[in-house]
């Protein structure tokens, strides 16, 4: 069957991934009520973009990623890749060939060596013989794990196992890489090193940068993305580049200890709403309030002997303003 010129035109400019009105619910149990994990969600991702799905636990990120990774299917809505519905078997197979996924738990067999794991992955993608050996050498060199290829995965450190898992996902040279909370369990330095490596790999081929979709609840990770999609209770609440989102808040955040009732009174009297996030009370003073209000507030807090910090808005503040809810306090949650 031949396609019409209009269809070619359509697919040539179609996003690499498009989600239309996706709905996925989970049945309730005796202890938990039924809930819609993803509710009428639509989004579009262009080829070569690095997109971060930002939201706290339960915002629908993982459910969305399971659907995008073809591990689950939606009740309603559809997923299109380059303009074609994934519902067709041929398109699904082609999509899976173009897909690399890094999950929260490394998809490696701990009893096998890194090389054996990568060889198995190559076989699953139909890469055989010398092609497989070359592909393993290529990803091992890229991720600097060549000297650990003969080690069993169970003996590797968390950071190294993560790199090996990324090597597994990159082995078939995917055009789309999905990372689901892929830095979970890594310490700060290992997390930064992993993200640096990912950024370098993405642009390794300047002519065709890899598309990356990354779920996270950490702001510093989301800051790396070209575009941040903020999810809340299964809905896409806002999107934009990290800078756009911060500028959209247009506010300065004032942070002080949550335990101080005096601070609460000072903010209330100034007519500025506050939110408690972990041990912090955060007030967002908008452009209309600045700069006099901020100076006034600062002097009142100082006179009351309350420790406080004035900072430019963060993605966490943008999320707070868009949803009224806070991202979980984590190690990457500092401005």
């Amino acid at each position: 069957m031949h396609s019409s010129p209009e269809q070619h035109e359509h697919t040539a400019h179609a996003p690499i991934l498009q989600v239309e009105n996706l709905v996925r619910s989970y049945k309730g149990t005796r202890r938990t009520p039924a809930r819609r994990a993803v509710d009428s969600l639509s989004l579009s991702i262009e080829e070569g973009e690095w997109v971060a799905l930002l939201g706290p636990n339960g915002s629908g990120k993982s459910t969305l990623v399971r659907i995008l990774a073809t591990l689950d299917k939606p009740e309603q809505g559809r997923v299109l890749t380059s303009g074609h519905d994934l519902a067709t078997k041929a398109q699904l197979a082609a999509y899976r060939r173009a897909l690399g996924v890094v999950f929260q738990h490394a998809g490696l067999d701990k009893l096998m060596t890194v090389r054996e794991n990568l060889a198995a992955q190559a076989a699953l993608h139909g890469i055989r013989g010398t092609d497989a050996a070359h592909a393993i050498d290529r990803v091992a060199a890229m991720l600097t794990i060549a000297d650990r290829l003969n080690d069993r995965v169970g003996t590797l450190s968390g950071g190294l196992a993560r790199r090996c898992d990324l090597a597994r996902a990159l082995l078939p040279q995917p055009r789309l890489l999905i990372l689901d909370e892929a830095t979970t369990g890594l310490d700060h330095d290992a997390r930064i090193a992993f993200l640096d490596q990912l950024a370098a790999l993405r642009t390794a081929d300047q002519s065709c940068p890899m598309t990356i979709i990354m779920t996270t609840h950490l702001m510093d990770e989301a800051e790396r993305a070209c575009r941040v999609l903020m999810l809340h209770e299964g809905h896409l609440v806002c999107e934009g580049s990290p800078q756009e989102l911060r500028e959209r808040v247009g506010a300065t955040s004032i942070r002080c200890p949550a335990s101080s009732t005096q601070a609460e009174t000072i903010f209330r009297e100034a007519g500025i709403p506050t939110t408690v996030r972990g041990r912090e009370r955060i007030a967002l003073a908008g452009p209309a309030d600045q700069p006099n209000t901020i100076a006034e507030l600062a002097s009142k807090l100082a006179l009351a002997g309350i420790a406080f910090q004035i900072a430019p808005p963060t993605l966490g503040d943008a999320y707070l303003e868009a949803t009224g809810a806070a991202l979980t306090q984590q190690n990457g949650d500092s401005p």
Binding site: M1, A90, A123, G126
Partner: peptide, 26 residues
């Protein structure tokens, strides 16, 4: 049209069920 398009999505070879089964059995 689908086959023409899908070939552009990724140049990776088609996965053989037998080689996958062999690798996973191994």
């Amino acid at each position: 049209m689908t086959s023409a398009h899908t070939s552009t999505l990724n140049a990776a070879p088609n996965s053989s069920g037998f080689s996958s089964a062999f690798a996973l059995t191994r």
